[in-house]
Amino acid sequence: TEIRININGVTIHVRDASEELKKLIEHLLRLGADEKEIREVLHRWEK
């Protein structure tokens, strides 16, 4: 699944996002995570 996240005008594009990762990101956004925090989570997730 491919997702695009727009945070304050900055688009983060994620290829091959699992449903689990998608739910995690949606949850973090609801909690008010910023772009830097989302990128950090994505970076750690890929490892």
Score class of each variant (00 low, 15 high):
Arg39Met: 09
Asp16Met: 09
Arg15Glu: 09
Val14Lys: 01
Ile12Lys: 01
Glu19Met: 08
Glu20Asp: 13
Gly9His: 10
Thr1His: 15
Ser18Val: 07
Leu31Glu: 11
Thr1Glu: 12
Ile38Gln: 00
Trp45Cys: 15
Ala33Asp: 01
Glu46Ala: 12
Glu46Arg: 07
His43Lys: 10
Leu28Lys: 07
His13Met: 08
His13Gln: 08
Glu46Ile: 12
Glu40Val: 02
Ser18Gln: 10
Gly32Trp: 01
Lys22Val: 14
Ile5Ala: 04
Asp34Trp: 02
Ser18Trp: 04
Lys23Pro: 01
Leu31Asn: 12
Glu2Lys: 06
Ser18Cys: 04
Leu21Pro: 00
Lys22Glu: 11
Glu46Thr: 13
Leu24Cys: 02
Val41Asp: 01
Glu26Gln: 08
Arg4Asn: 12
Glu26Phe: 08
Asn8Lys: 08
Arg4Ile: 13
Ile38Asp: 00
Lys47Ser: 14
Arg39Lys: 10
Trp45Phe: 11
Ile38Trp: 03
Gly9Trp: 01
Arg44Met: 14
Lys36Tyr: 10
Asp34Arg: 05
Arg4Val: 12
Leu31Pro: 01
His13Trp: 01
Leu24Pro: 00
Lys23Leu: 15
Glu19Pro: 13
His27Gly: 10
Ile3Phe: 02
Val41Pro: 00
Glu20Gly: 07
Val14Gly: 04
Val10Arg: 08
Glu19Cys: 06
Asp34Gly: 13
Glu19Gln: 09
Glu37Arg: 11
Gly32Cys: 02
Ser18His: 09
Ile5His: 02
Glu46Gln: 15
Leu24Lys: 12
Asp16Ile: 06
Glu2Met: 03
His27Ile: 07
Lys36Phe: 11
Leu29Tyr: 03
Glu40Arg: 05
Glu37Thr: 15
Thr11His: 15
Asp16Phe: 06
Arg4Trp: 06
Val10Met: 07
Ile38Gly: 00
Glu40Ile: 03
Leu42Gly: 00
Val10Asp: 07
Gly32Met: 02
Thr11Asn: 10
Val10Lys: 11
Ile3Asp: 04
Glu20Asn: 08
Ala33Asn: 03
Glu26Arg: 04
Ser18Gly: 09
Val41Leu: 14
Glu19His: 10
Arg30Ala: 14
His13Ile: 10
Leu28His: 10
Thr11Asp: 08
Lys47Leu: 12
Ala17Leu: 09
Gly32Ala: 03
Glu35Met: 09
Arg4Tyr: 10
Arg39Gln: 08
Lys22Thr: 15
Lys22Trp: 09
Glu20Lys: 09
Trp45Asn: 07
Ile25Thr: 01
Ile25Glu: 00
Gly9Val: 03
Lys47Cys: 11
Arg39Pro: 00
Val14Gln: 04
Arg30Ser: 15
Thr11Cys: 05
His27Phe: 06
Glu19Ser: 09
Ile7Phe: 03
His43Cys: 08
His13Arg: 05
Glu46His: 12
